[in-house]
């Protein structure tokens, strides 16, 4: 049976992880490769690396990092952050990334999803959507959540699927960083209305939140950052707990 995936997310700036971590075992907590290897050994199913570097030579630094990760890590990983052209994707896939995530550029130009899916295959195109409740309607935000749009989350996700996205990575901004749990309602609605896998993100604070989002929202994967980085939740213990809750995981 297909298992539910647990995905740690690492923010990268200038080739280094941004947030500190509590892993005393790491020689260099800012080294994404070392952290990635640790997560992989602990049983992470996939990894996501988001490049938040703003400088001009960001692409080259990130591509070099992607290649280092691909050399070292034997599980799949997705890279994202500022991807807006076919060439961006080509460089990252050539460096060894398995999937890329697109966000703002796809909102600005939805056809980008189709172009990328036709060229590289849907399986490697993840549509990342940041959304927030505005007057009790889920609206899409761009540019790292800084820019509001009038686009409805569920309409956009549906359109993304039709254009050829292979997965949806949905971040509930209201939840992000709160540790109050994933947004079960929005994730459930996405999961039920689409035929592509949904990765839930935003709000993970304890192990029960993962159980809930898999059991109640029926998402395919759950992504988190700080609870893993600061060691509040260990991936191995999380997966054992999920297994106790009769959720299929890879152990």
């Amino acid at each position: 049976m297909l298992t539910k995936r647990i995905i740690p997310c690492l923010d990268i700036k200038d080739g280094r992880t941004v947030k500190g971590t509590n892993f005393v075992s790491l020689k260099d907590a800012g080294d994404p490769v070392e952290l990635a290897r640790l997560y992989s050994e602990q049983g992470a199913d996939e990894l996501v690396f988001l490049d938040i570097t703003a400088t001009h030579d960001r692409r080259k630094t990130f591509a070099e990092l992607v290649e280092k990760i691909a050399r070292e890590i034997s599980i799949p990983f997705t890279v994202g952050g500022g991807i807006s052209t076919v060439e961006d994707v080509q460089v990252l896939l050539k460096a060894g990334a398995d999937k890329v995530s697109v966000n703002t550029a796809a909102v600005k130009e939805p056809e980008l999803i189709r172009t990328l899916a036709e060229k590289f295959g849907s399986q490697c195109i993840v549509l990342a959507i940041d959304a927030n409740l505005v007057n009790s309607e889920w609206k899409v935000f761009t540019t790292g959540g800084r820019h509001a749009t009038d686009i409805n989350l569920f309409d956009w996700a549906k359109q993304g699927e039709a254009l050829g996205a292979g997965e949806i990575l949905f971040t509930a901004m209201t939840r992000d960083g709160t540790k109050d749990g994933f947004d079960l309602e929005a994730n459930k609605r996405l999961s039920e209305s689409l035929r592509i896998p949904i990765i839930a993100s935003g709000g993970a604070g304890n192990m029960n939140h993962f159980t809930e989002v898999f059991q109640q929202a029926n998402v395919d994967a759950a992504l988190a950052a700080s609870v893993f980085h600061y060691g509040a939740i260990g991936i191995q213990e999380l997966k054992k707990e999920l297994q106790r809750q009769k959720i299929n995981v890879r152990i």
């Binding site: 049976m1 298992t3 539910k4 035929r195 592509i196």
Partner: peptide, 13 residues
């Protein structure tokens, strides 16, 4: 076939 989610993505036995 419908109604399976596609792609079949992730770890399976």
């Amino acid at each position: 076939p419908v109604p399976l989610k596609i792609p079949h993505v992730g770890w399976n036995q």
